[in-house]
Design a protein around this nucleic acid. Structure first.
Length: 850
RNA sequence: GCGGGUGUGGCGGAACGGUAGACGCGAGGGUCUCAAAAACCCUUUCCGAAAGGAGUGUCGGUUCGAAUCCGACCACCCGCACCA
């Protein structure tokens, strides 16, 4: 008997789909459209199991929607700018463009055998001048619309390599290559005014009802709207020009508990003092070695320096608070200055304990006096507390009430005003790097900063650059930056900064709707295809990429590049989990782990194949090169076929959770698919006559249609697959006849086709299905087939399951109660007494309380 | 540190507040075979001979009933604005 051979069957069906143009996205006004998008990959050169999982999920949705009659857009492209290409050029020589395009070619070749329903005719890379030129055009429109501006901002500066470092290149405060202590340095940089949209981006989250709740929550917290009081302290002993110190606080109700004020090391006052005071200069310099990430600031030991300056308490001039420079105050948030209330803020308390500052309680729990030791009292703002030092409002009130009263009181007394603050900062897009989209502006000595003319776009990156020294090659290129001023025609210099790669990924979804248009988008195409109906990607993008894209879509709408309906570009979002694998390691003579590839390990014996040395095993960890626990999809596909990889990656775990890749699981998936194929070949040869088993099988088929469909709709592909396993067992055991069985197998082929499209075609063809299963209509379950006449009700006694009874589906409650009380287990438990309570949940359960 | 999430048999997991463990893996037993592989059949949460009891990270709460809801804690994962 011939065996299931995916290496022959899969390429055959892929060719058939290509020939029929099944996956070409067609703008067809007569049909509803469906746009499925997976987050596009960075072209590292190798696909990994995470990609397989991501694209398989998208493919299931795309094929399912196609079968439902939608005109489907399912494109693929490459997030191709970024640091790895420059790092490769530095390490191995060569050019980032060559490295990137070679990687793209490799990855495309690795992806094609997966049999994805992608319209490859729309493919592009963000490093194509055709793409980034349109991005430059939009940048100019944004500039024109006042959505972009320049200001100073700090970067991580490596003083040895003389280059700007990304946060990930700063390791424990040092440059990753040079090992030098990183400094913060200020540069003039371009910013998008995303904070202008903070309120709108926040409010619109409510409408994203097909996004995961957790993502909306994360974005909400990230945008971080807060109401507070902004006011100015009068200073004592401050230098000229610093008579007042503006502070912002979300807890003005605790003002009478303030015992110090603190300013950021980047605050203008700190910068002033730095120039005249060596101690301040030394402390501020220390703060600036911390790196620029919020994480670095927050996890560093909290430190401060007393400036000797005091501020007067606005409601009690006899109280003078010391002013500290502190390493945990952010210049970007609020005014870069705060007052500290140690009793009701843990960080302030730690700071106060360290520097011997007063701890003054402002409020207490309602029913107990409060003495703050090492733990600040920070109840939820909705909880009523007793104010012992109220600024305004009653003695007993919630934090929220007290804050409102405090702001009103302060405003009445001319001490500051209530303000709405957002945590969200403007989006700095300048990067001092080569491999990115050039910012299309020119610096002219006479005209200043001048936008490039659109007809000169794209401003292309020069080819002749070298990476043999650190820093931005554009900066040291002999001629590239020299140009004529678009305004006066005089000699001018191009901006050598390029754009953050988040810009590239903030609008690619729109470009896919018209990838070759001579403008960034084509209104006819965006009108038909937008929005993305289903977006799929990793949770790690929950905040930045998705928030930036939401902003960008709004900016594109404002500049006429997207219709109003597309300001929220992703209707539904699904975040999938990681692919993990066991990690195998031995230890070197110093006890450090030495990792080994899965292929080199005998998993049963837990020994290295080569030496027999025992290996230690850690359970599932994210696949990573450093731990060598990677499984190459290419090897899996060549050994078992794409369908096996697809089936396994979908089968075990729910899509939102991590899935552990195991060799045993992959082999089992292959065995199952072989079995389905074998059953199909047996069904063909069968001549069993029709019987009662036909109806039974038919019922099982309809149930399966219902469950598989529900699984796909609910992104529970693992449940759809469990149903298909069960259906396979049912068909295998069924005594149904030579008409019913092929019919069942045809439906099974349809139900399988989103997950294992090649095998589905094979089975479909064997069963005499018409045309391609990829083009067949999705089957419908007959509702009448889904109900049972008799149901089994479990009986609980005191909440524990003790028995069960079978009753007609629509039996009246009295009848069910009567039968339940007649049950042996119930009689035994009651011992002649009447039940205390008898709960009947129709169609569900009976609970007898004795 | 802050924000968000996850936690169920040996393993991956299933379970509108209603029979905990569907489906799969692994393991054990069997059929077929000279033998093996493949295939097929059966068993498989734990303790217990059984009756029965225990059980969804830990501790507490709400409920007739909690894996599910609430509170506290523990562990792990994601993000923290220049990684993509």
């Amino acid at each position: 008997m011939p065996r299931y051979d995916p290496s022959r069957s899969e390429p055959k069906w892929q060719a058939a789909w290509d020939e029929a143009g099944v996956f070409t996205a067609r703008h067809d006004e007569s049909r509803p459209k469906y746009y499925v998008l997976e987050m596009f990959p960075y072209p590292s050169g190798r696909i990994h199991m995470g990609h397989v999982r991501n694209y398989t999920m998208g493919d299931v949705v795309a094929r399912y929607k196609l079968a439902q009659g939608f005109s489907v857009l399912h494109p693929m492209g490459w997030d191709a700018f970024g640091m790895p290409a420059e790092n490769a050029a530095m390490e191995q020589g060569g050019h980032p463009a060559d490295w990137t395009y070679a990687n793209i070619a490799d990855m495309r070749e690795q992806m094609k055998p997966m049999g994805l329903s992608i319209d490859w005719s729309r493919e592009f890379a963000t490093c194509d001048p055709e793409y980034y030129g349109q991005q430059q055009a939009m940048f100019l429109d944004f500039l024109d619309a006042g959505l972009v501006y320049r200001k100073n901002a700090v970067v991580n500066w490596d003083p040895v390599d003389q280059t700007v470092l990304a946060n990930e290149q700063v390791i424990e405060g040092r440059g990753w290559r040079s090992g030098a202590e990183v400094e913060r340095r200020e540069l003039t940089q371009w910013f998008f005014r995303i904070s202008d949209y903070a309120g709108e981006l926040l409010a619109a989250l409510d409408g994203l009802d097909k996004w995961p709740e957790k993502v909306r929550l994360m974005q909400q917290n990230w945008i971080g709207r807060s109401q507070g009081l902004q006011f100015a302290f009068s200073t004592v002993g401050a230098p000229e020009g610093f008579e007042r110190l503006e502070v912002f606080s979300t807890r003005p109700d605790t003002l009478l508990g303030a015992s110090f004020a603190a300013i950021s090391a980047d605050h203008p006052l700190a910068r002033h003092l730095e120039r005249h005071d060596d101690d301040v200069a030394a402390f501020v310099a220390e703060c600036r070695h911390l790196g620029t990430s919020e994480e670095a600031l927050e996890t560093a030991e909290k430190k401060g320096l007393d400036t000797g300056i005091k501020v007067l308490h606005p409601f009690d001039n006899s109280v003078e608070l010391p002013v500290y420079i502190a390493n945990f105050i952010l210049m970007d948030y609020g005014t870069g200055a705060i007052f500290g209330v140690p009793a009701h803020d843990q960080r302030d308390l730690d700071f106060a304990r360290k520097y011997g500052l007063d701890v003054i309680e402002v409020f207490e729990p309602r029913d107990a006096p409060l003495t703050v030791e090492d733990e600040a009292y920070v109840p939820p703002k909705t909880e009523p507390v007793r104010y012992v030092r109220p600024l305004a409002g009653g003695e007993r009130q919630t934090g929220d009430e007290a804050i409102g009263a405090a702001i009103a009181f302060c405003e009445e007394n001319g001490v500051g005003h209530g303000v709405t603050q957002y945590r969200l900062r403007d989006w700095g897009l300048s990067r001092q790097r080569y491999w990115g989209c050039p910012i299309p502006v020119v610096h002219c000595d006479t005209c200043g900063v001048v936008p490039e003319r659109k007809e000169n776009l794209p401003i292309e990156l020069p080819r002749d650059v070298s990476f043999d020294q650190p820093g931005n090659p554009l900066d040291r290129h002999p001629s590239w930056a020299h140009c004529a001023c678009p305004k006066c025609g005089g000699e001018a210099r191009r901006e050598t900064d390029t754009m953050d790669t988040f810009v590239d990924s903030s609008w690619y979804y729109a470009r896919f709707t018209a990838p070759r248009a001579p403008t960034p988008t084509d209104p006819v195409e965006t009108d038909y295809w937008m929005n993305v109906d289903q977006y799929i990607g990793g949770i790690e993008h929950a905040i930045l990429h998705l928030l930036y894209s939401r902003f960008f879509a709004r900016a594109m709408h404002r500049t006429g590049h997207l219709p109003a309906k597309a300001v929220e570009p992703f209707d539904a979002l699904f975040t999938q989990g990681m692919v993990t694998h066991e990690v195998y390691y031995t230890r070197d003579n110093r006890g450090r782990p030495v990792y080994h590839l899965p292929d080199d390990v005998d998993k049963d014996a837990r020994r290295l194949k080569a030496t027999g040395e025992a290996v230690e095993v850690i359970g599932n960890a994210k696949m990573s090169k450093s731990k060598k626990n990677v499984v190459d999809p290419v090897n899996i596909i060549s050994a078992f076929g794409a369908d096996t990889a697809r089936w396994f990656i979908l089968s075990d775990s729910p899509p939102e959770r991590d899935v552990e890749w195991t060799e045993a699981g992959a082999e089992a998936a292959f065995r199952h698919l072989s079995r389905v194929w074998r059953i199909a070949t047996e069904v063909v040869e069968s001549d069993t006559p029709a019987s009662e088993a036909d109806a039974e099988l038919n019922k099982a088929v309809h149930r399966a249609i219902h469950e598989v469909t529900e699984g796909i709709e609910g992104f529970a592909f693992n449940k759809s697959i469990a149903t298909l396993y069960a259906l396979t067992n049912t068909v295998a055991k069924s005594k149904a006849g030579a008409e019913a069985k092929p019919a069942a197998m045809r439906v099974m082929a349809q139900l399988m086709s989103p997950m294992v499209p090649h095998l589905a075609e094979e089975v479909w063809a064997l069963m005499g299905g018409e045309g391609l299963v990829a083009q067949a209509d999705w089957p419908r379950a007959d509702p009448a087939m889904l109900v049972d006449e008799e149901i089994v009700l479990p009986i609980q006694i005191n909440g524990k399951r003790r028995s069960e009874i079978a009753v007609p589906r629509d039996a009246p409650r009295e009848e069910v109660e009567k039968r339940a009380l007649a049950d042996d287990a119930v009689i035994k438990a009651l011992q002649g007494a009447a039940p205390k309570k008898l709960i009947v949940v129709p169609g569900r359960i009976i609970n007898v309380v004795v």
